[in-house]
Design a protein around this nucleic acid. Structure first.
Lengths: 251, 251
DNA sequence: CCAACCAATATTGTCGACACTTTTAAAGTT
DNA sequence: AACTTTAAAAGTGTCGACAATATTGGTTGG
């Protein structure tokens, strides 16, 4: 029913971003290698990475002829890619005017947090209620991996948010609700990543976040959906408050 | 930031559905009348209505050349409309194979309810916290209108779900969170409508639903976000249970 | 000097045609 | 008769060109 979802959150981000190093690289080269994906698919993946990572600046105008030349593709295929980006709310299109990359606003970021609190809270509840043995093993392994990484980096200035991303990604997967999975992992998380890359949300919350993650997984293991949901919502709201503070200091 | 959202849920559904009565009606006729919308836009709106209302059967294959001929448009414009339908999860496309209307499954319907519980619960909480005087007036008026309609129809066999739809639509609008509004009103609700139309969810819950609506609005008026969220979640979960029972009896 | 108007340019929307893939149907073989 | 192979048909993906619209720059009038 839903689109493809890679098992790990990180590889889905890196798989395509590594494919295009130089600017003028032709996308069509991989025509025979990777089986069934269209040119528009590849354009979409490439542009998605470039927008998320800020290589195409937030708020900037997108010129169809220019991009088409750059990727050596027709405007038709490019337009298909742009429309998919629009459905992710990574760009905005206006009739007879053109497309712009969305700009990152404080309000938009806070709105995302409220939606995440609702959806991931539900995902966490469902994960606790429907958890499979396999999910439990993977969640536990992931937690131990993050603990080790945290030990290694103790004292370093900032905390790479990939661990946090993995955590949320996996729990959503464990919910078993395909609509929820698609909404979060294939849509909303790309905007989350865009904010993280470009506003550089390097939280000093590393240790605290790890403890919170740990408690959430315990609730899932115990099959306590109600508690799991409460803890996840508090976890996300704490993150939101943290950001809110940081933003208010900047202004 | 988000797309257009009409003030009422009903007119957004009727505005376009009424435009195309006969099958072969040309879409391009309205080119000069309604200002700035493209042919692909109109195709999208028309097809969306036809799919939601079941005039294009759930699960059926979609032929691009056939539809293009029928609406007297080029395949390019039609494809753009199809891609937007795909982003609403009203159709599914597979490379080099084509598009099919999604089919309605029991599981899919229950998944929607879980997502609605999460999102509308949050919307209700935000509406209670951010409510404007204008929102309160409109919500109260809507409730009175529904009460009158309920009186008129007392004893009739089934309950038109439009009132229920209006209720949820308005509360989401009052949340003030554009992402939430867009996700629910411009995306998810069309799938909800599709299930209602085609599986004919005529609830006998009319009276009970009205009482629940009333309590929810009271909580919003009182500015009690926590209670408003709890009540909305219970309201939706009750609806879900009701459907679940009905479905299990059919099988 | 500024504002409004107008022509020239660039960009988007739409279309029809061609290339490639999948599906269908027939022919042939075991 | 059933299965495989093969050719024809249909459908999708991609492209380049044309038409309609928005933007830019210059010109004119106040």
């Amino acid at each position: 029913m839903e689109q493809q979802v890679s098992k790990s959150s990180t590889d889905s981000a890196d798989a395509d971003s590594g494919a295009e190093a130089a600017v003028g690289t032709s996308i069509g080269a991989a025509k025979s290698t990777s089986g069934s994906q269209s040119l528009a698919d590849r354009l979409f993946l490439t542009l998605r990475s470039e927008i998320v990572e800020g290589r195409i600046a937030a708020g900037s105008k997108i010129s169809e002829p220019e991009l088409a030349r750059r990727f050596d593709a027709s405007r038709g295929s490019l337009r298909e890619a742009l429309m998919r980006l629009e459905s992710l709310s990574l760009i905005e299109r206006r009739v007879n005017v053109g497309a712009r990359v969305v700009d990152l606003t404080e309000r938009g970021l806070l709105e995302i947090y409220d939606v995440r609190e609702a959806l991931e809270g539900m995902a966490c509840r469902l994960a606790a209620e429907n958890r499979s043995e396999e999910d439990l093993v993977e969640l536990r392994q992931m937690l131990e991996r993050h603990e080790q990484q945290e030990e290694l980096q103790k004292g370093t200035a900032y905390y790479q948010p990939e661990g946090d991303f993995d955590f949320h990604f996996r729990i959503v997967q464990a919910s078993g609700n395909d609509l929820l999975i698609d909404t979060l992992c294939n849509k909303l998380y790309f905007r989350v990543r865009m904010y993280r890359y470009q506003l550089g949300m390097a939280s000093p919350r590393a240790h605290r976040a790890f403890r919170e993650h740990s408690h959430i997984i315990e609730a899932i293991e115990a099959g306590d959906g109600e508690l799991a949901e409460i803890l996840m919502r508090r976890h996300i709201r704490a993150s939101r408050s943290n950001i809110e503070n940081k933003l208010s200091k900047q202004n």
